[in-house]
Design a protein around this nucleic acid. Structure first.
Lengths: 253, 253
DNA sequence: TCAAAAGTGTTTCCCATACACCCATGC
DNA sequence: GCATGGGTGTATGGGAAACACTTTTGA
């Protein structure tokens, strides 16, 4: 940013005492969505190694390194540190700033959302975390439950207001999925995928079955005819008729 | 928020040194949209009385009073201080956190959007502002221009990255207007308005003419049949056939 | 009687949905 | 062959857009 200013202004800035305002801490929280081996919607949670909420499960994220990085960069850095993904697409979700949401001090949290296929997640806990795991999201009368092979966590067990963050992320994702390309980010291989595979991703996110012929029509119209996706000559065979493969232009390398 | 914690955790919190993390300043900026006397999309700008960007025009807003208020409250408070509106509907837009967007120090800005009819705006500058004015928004090859009766400001003249904030607000508003009730907030009188009046608001926001018969159909279906809006017995006459008046249920008192 | 603006009705088209049916493979 | 999933085509319905037409006023 080029900021030209007068000598007068420069003097003001030089003696500006940055500490004279009360300042909240700023963190980012990232809702990392993925599909598990049975194509169920899942989210990455980290078991906190420190107070507050020690030993409770929480979203990955952490404090902003002020001055050195943007808020967006902070989200990407935390994601990199905790999952090994270095170029994930993070979209900003909402900023949570109720006093009291963190017992230490006022903490403003900028929430992000990322969609990452499971096999790309190199799960490793960061400095202030002990454990990380992918949990399938299930709904019941009493809200969300997060299930992995060892345990079930109910939404009230999550740290901070992270259940609210996840709920908002799911809502936003569902609203976006019809007219944004989000689903493509969850493909196992963007260079070789089938329509059925993409349809399963949509079904998982919308939580309802879709009609394959109609889904195909939309796909051909919105992606193939527009050139965003190219049909490959290859097909794969497992059971039934061989399946055409498609490739996302400008996707993974 | 009820936060139950162990004695061990309580001890940790007691000795927690809040200042050991670097902390950015947090501000809110509010994009106040209104329509001018000719129903053109307009925005409220404040001439800054202090460095940085002294004497430049900027969005209303200010620093978060940490611990005392939420980020949402901060936006509402600033709006109150600068426009006299105390119950305006502010919706969160986006959080801007690029280092360097403020020359003083890292400033994270949470942007909000509000829609307020012009006659409700009691424009008065706050402490750190000198002047406030409503500017009509015009577009040209070189971007946005902000015009009031005395001057024209181009978007590059605005303080900070406020041109980006306004651009994003307009985009978001346009995308929302079809399925949200935003336009109703801009009615001069929610207890007595005509379909044509509401249509003009939509036209201004979408920046294109709409078909009255079709607009009426949507209005009757979405608002009158659902009970959100009631038809009054009154009509008003100016030129041509008298016009039916409608009243928003649960609107202004 | 004419202009102006409100209000009604009709036609057309697109697109989402539903679903019947054919195709190519493994077994 | 037949089960399995891929792929094609068709019928239906609702909503958006375009527009012809009627109504009620002031001048």
């Amino acid at each position: 940013m080029s900021y030209q200013c007068s000598k007068e202004e420069r003097e003001f800035l030089d003696q500006y005492d940055a500490s004279r305002y009360e300042r909240p801490s700023v963190t980012t929280d990232i809702v990392v969505f993925t599909l598990d081996e049975l194509d169920r919607l899942s989210v990455l949670l980290i078991k906190r190694g420190q107070f507050p909420y020690k030993d409770r499960w929480a979203l990955p994220g952490g404090f902003l390194h002020t001055a050195r990085e943007s808020v967006d960069d902070c989200a990407r850095r935390e994601l990199m540190e905790e999952t090994g993904i270095d170029n994930a697409f993070c979209s900003q979700l909402y900023t949570f700033g109720e006093p009291g949401r963190d017992p230490r001090t006022t903490v403003i949290s900028v929430a992000y959302m990322a969609l990452i296929p499971k096999h790309k997640l190199q799960i490793k806990a960061g400095d202030d975390a002990k454990e990380a795991s992918i949990f399938q999201i299930q709904y019941d009368v009493d809200g969300m439950h997060f299930i992995n092979s060892q345990m079930t966590i109910s939404e009230s067990d999550l740290a901070f207001d992270h259940a609210d963050v996840i709920r908002m992320a799911i809502t936003k994702l569902r609203n976006r999925i019809d007219y944004e390309d989000d689903a493509l980010a969850l493909l196992k291989d963007q260079n070789e995928f089938t329509i059925t595979e993409l349809k399963k991703i949509h079904e998982t996110i919308k939580n309802k079955p879709l009609d394959l012929p109609n889904f195909r029509k939309s796909f051909l119209r919105d992606y193939v005819k527009t050139g965003k996706v190219k049909e490959l000559d290859k097909t794969i065979v497992s059971k039934g008729k061989p399946t055409k493969l498609y490739k996302l232009m400008g996707g993974d390398v």
